[in-house]
Structure formats: structure tokens, C-alpha cells
């Protein structure tokens, strides 16, 4: 039923020249939940994620978003429908200020993006909302720094603020804590918890302990297929999961 699930996939498959990276994955993301996609290296998490956000085209299968078939849609179009992604390597516009970073996203939402004959000052009306969003992720005082000057963890926060500017219904986070120190990690986890309060989040994670207290549902992928699905308690006790993780050297 379209009402219960915001995103569904049916037998989603991606083949790269004979190598099957994602094989018949059926995902159902419940509206309003935090859903994590985990698995060891090479399990097909990121490929799966790129399929969902249309950065890759599936070889077979269907993707339904709010009951609509988006299997053949363009990435920019699904973003406009409210399905917005983040990237594994923090995706900011490095030589724009933080305020401008967020404003670029607001511009799309409020339609001021084609005006080449108007002054930049036409964008000043978006500054308040941009500042609000920066404050929401704890970056208010850095608004006029350029993004490249930020430490890694704060770039992540900026990315989330930019994503939130689009008021997405479904937020897709690609390894939001990848490469992060302990201190940044705590801050980003808290941030995700906060933004997940009134929207659906689907995240890819490498680290089982990060998703433990964040997610309602966890899907474990291994070798391109769904191994098991359930809440943390169920998943973490599953012998296959333990084996998959232990087997590749992760506790």
C-alpha cells in the first residue's frame, strides 16, 4: 500500500559487465521511520543507494516512490519530488560561503535560478531562511566562512542543512559518519536524530553501532542480496549477520 511505505523496490538488480552488484533487492521503507542499510564492504550498499537516487539506472526491477514508478526518472527530477540524497564524500560547494551553500538549495525551491539579468541582491530575501537552517545544524556563527575552511564533521552538518532546505520527504544519507572522529560522530548522530523527527530517513552505514540507537529498521545486505531485515536486537543476534561481519573482519 502506497500510504504505509514511502519507498519500495521490487527485485532491484544492477549488473556491471557480468558482475551482479545488487541482486533482486526488495526494500520497503516505512513512512516516518529511520531505515538503515548496512553490510560489509562490497555488499552493494552504495550501488543500491545510487540506484534509489537515480544516479545509476537499474538493470532490472522497479522503484516506487509514494506509489509512483520512478525507475526511469532523472536524478534532478526525483530530487524535486522530495527524495534528496547526501554523498559519502561530503558534498558541499567548497568556494561558496556557508550561507550561499544553503541558498543555492533554497533558490531551487523558490524558483529564482534562471534569472541571469537580475542582481545577486535578489537572493537576499532567502538569507533569513538560510541563516535559520544553518542555526538548526549549529553553524550559525560560521555563515560567512567559505565551506572549504570547515573541518570535516561540520561540512557534514552543512550538507544536511543544504539538504533540509529542500524540505525533503525522504532523506537518503550515504554513510553519514564515514571517516569521522569520535567527537564529530556524536554530533552528527544527534543531528540525524533531530532531523529524522518529522521525516523519513534511509541511510547507508558501514558501522553497526552507529545505527543501533538511530534506526527502527535495519536491512543487512551481503553480496548484493538482502541477508536479513529487522530491528537492531533481531539483526545483531542473527548468526548470518555475525558471520558476515566477523568474516570480513568487523566486530
Amino acid at each position: 500500500m502506497a500510504g504505509d511505505y514511502i519507498l519500495e523496490t521490487e527485485r532491484l538488480t544492477k549488473e556491471f559487465r557480468g558482475f551482479v552488484a545488487v541482486n533482486g533487492v526488495g526494500l520497503r521503507v516505512r513512512r516516518g521511520s529511520v531505515h538503515a542499510l548496512i553490510g560489509p564492504n562490497g555488499a552493494g550498499k552504495t550501488t543500491c543507494f545510487n540506484l534509489l537516487t537515480k544516479f545509476l539506472t537499474p538493470s532490472a526491477g522497479r522503484i516506487l516512490y509514494n506509489g509512483r514508478d520512478i525507475t526511469r526518472a532523472a536524478p534532478a527530477d526525483v530530487a524535486q519530488m522530495g527524495l534528496v540524497r547526501s554523498f559519502q564524500i561530503s558534498a558541499v560547494f567548497p568556494h561558496l560561503t556557508l550561507l550561499e551553500n544553503v541558498r543555492v538549495a533554497l533558490q531551487k525551491k523558490r524558483g529564482k535560478s534562471f534569472d541571469f539579468w537580475r542582481s545577486e541582491r535578489a537572493l537576499d530575501s532567502l538569507n533569513d531562511r538560510a541563516a535559520e537552517l544553518l542555526a538548526e545544524v549549529g553553524l550559525a556563527e560560521f555563515a560567512h566562512l567559505t565551506a572549504v575552511e570547515l573541518p570535516y564533521g561540520r561540512k557534514r552538518a552543512l550538507e544536511i542543512a543544504t539538504t533540509l532546505a529542500l524540505e525533503p520527504e525522504l532523506l537518503l544519507l550515504d554513510e553519514p559518519t564515514a571517516g569521522m572522529g569520535h567527537e564529530d560522530l556524536g554530533r552528527v548522530v544527534a543531528l540525524i536524530k533531530r532531523v529524522a523527527a518529522n521525516r523519513t530517513v534511509l541511510m547507508v552505514e558501514h558501522n553497526l553501532s552507529v545505527v543501533a540507537d538511530l534506526s527502527h529498521t535495519i536491512t543487512v545486505l551481503a553480496r548484493g542480496e538482502v541477508l536479513v531485515e529487522g530491528d537492531y536486537a533481531a539483526v545483531s543476534k542473527n548468526p548470518q549477520v555475525i558471520e558476515a561481519y566477523m568474516g570480513s573482519g568487523h566486530a
Binding site: 534532478a76 534528496v84 560547494f93 568556494h95 533558490q107 537580475r118 539538504t163
Partner: peptide, 27 residues
């Protein structure tokens, strides 16, 4: 004027990080 216009901002964003601009819904 084009460079310092709302359109110019989007151009700059595309030049800086095209996949990110796409993911924000820019065609």
C-alpha cells in the same frame, strides 16, 4: 551581471560540484 546574478550562483554551484547540484534538483 550574469556572473553576479541568481543564475550565476547556480552556475558557480554546478562548476564547484555538479553531482551535488543535480542532487539538489537542478537540471
Amino acid at each position: 551581471r550574469v556572473i553576479h546574478s541568481p543564475f550565476g550562483q547556480v552556475l558557480k554551484a554546478i562548476r564547484e560540484n555538479e553531482p551535488r547540484a543535480i542532487s539538489l534538483g537542478y537540471n
